[in-house]
Design a protein around this nucleic acid. Sequence first.
DNA 1: CGCCGACACATGAAAAGTCATATGTTCACC
DNA 2: GGTGAACATATGACTTTTCATGTGTCGGCG
Lengths: 139, 139
Amino acid sequence: MTTPPRFVEDYLLALLAQASHAASADFHARLKARGVAVPVWRVLATLHGAAAGATVGQLGKTCLMQQPTMSKLLDRMAADGLLARTRQGRQTRIALTSTGAALADSLVAEARAHEAALLARHAEAAPALKALLRAIISG
Amino acid sequence: MTTPPRFVEDYLLALLAQASHAASADFHARLKARGVAVPVWRVLATLHGAAAGATVGQLGKTCLMQQPTMSKLLDRMAADGLLARTRQGRQTRIALTSTGAALADSLVAEARAHEAALLARHAEAAPALKALLRAIISG
DNA sequence: CGCCGACACATGAAAAGTCATATGTTCACC
DNA sequence: GGTGAACATATGACTTTTCATGTGTCGGCG
């Protein structure tokens, strides 16, 4: 008799979380090797190529962090010289410094290479997967 | 002219993380309404229907938490009467108390209902999606 | 104009997570 | 059987996140 499938092994939200975690694991290891924390990387990636910068709120949403967490992360990144704040009315615009932009460029290149390798291992299904993930994200 | 696609908007790892986050959002809200933190839920879900319990290490892996984090989470859950530890040689076996099992049952039922609704919205693609996620998880 | 509610962000105290390491256990090998 | 390496978990110092709330700004409306 086969063991009945345990709930957690077929639960969609668990599969999503585990897939996300597993897929990111080795890239995250490379980040750590370079001394870059995951939240820092997310901000850099989000700001990469965003000429006009972004607001704290926008960064929070796309990086999946709460607003106070983001504020404090930005404190540290500013202290490290990666970005600068500019108050604009009631919102704060965040822009990378040249140091931050250089780091972002370098990491984005590495991420792209890593992604390409991952996609190659699921070549047929990849476009459909991305589309499906987008659908889920859109609700 | 269309804006060039920003890196982060087409990056697979970001899509996975965002999809996972978005898909979980309203269930997590229900957990919060019941006063249950997400890591607590994950442990309950993992232990649900695991007659023999699990070890700290196993829980850490399936719940995507590091071992010291798990140890301390288990401290709190034990203090709340949700589970009990039993040292077995060099490992510690974790089993739900009846209180914990009742809570787990209730939450798992709610999670199944929530998942069913989500799957219904992506009926055709769901099996393929799960298969793909499993492939990613397996590396 | 002046006021009030909504908004965007910052901050302080408390909780949770992380990193390094300590403790206790098993296993292989001599 | 004793010793040392690998394992499984626990714990302590420190960092990050969270929750609640504070501060400053815009918007509409009397």
